[in-house]
Amino acid sequence: MTLTQQIITVSMVILATVITRFLPFIIFPAGKETPKFIKYLGKVLPAAVFGLLVIYCLKNVSIMDGSHGIPELIAILCVVAIHLWKRQMLLSIATGTVVYMLLIQLVF
């Protein structure tokens, strides 16, 4: 690929990304009344998207082979247990990550 072709390709990547970010704000501008259905989606979507993001992070975990997702399961249970106990976001995340790293580096 020549430099010009590279620049065009990267510009396309930028343009497509910018469109996905700005489109909702362009279609539903702040000054105008947002349709009720979109307002409803705006309220209920976050909870669903947080669930989607959890699954997205785990998408390459394979239950059938390798370590069968056991390190992920143990680490997530740690995160949940510690978070329910202390409700300290950073502590829960740090502990879960360290547990996971130890599990895959030393155990599995």
Partner: peptide, 21 residues
């Protein structure tokens, strides 16, 4: 150096955010 598994920090964060919600 051995950073294997460090990317789990993102998974852990989304789990916490999901749980908080």
């Amino acid at each position: 150096f051995n950073t294997e598994g460090l990317d789990f920090v993102m998974t852990a964060m989304f789990v916490v955010i999901f749980l908080e919600q």
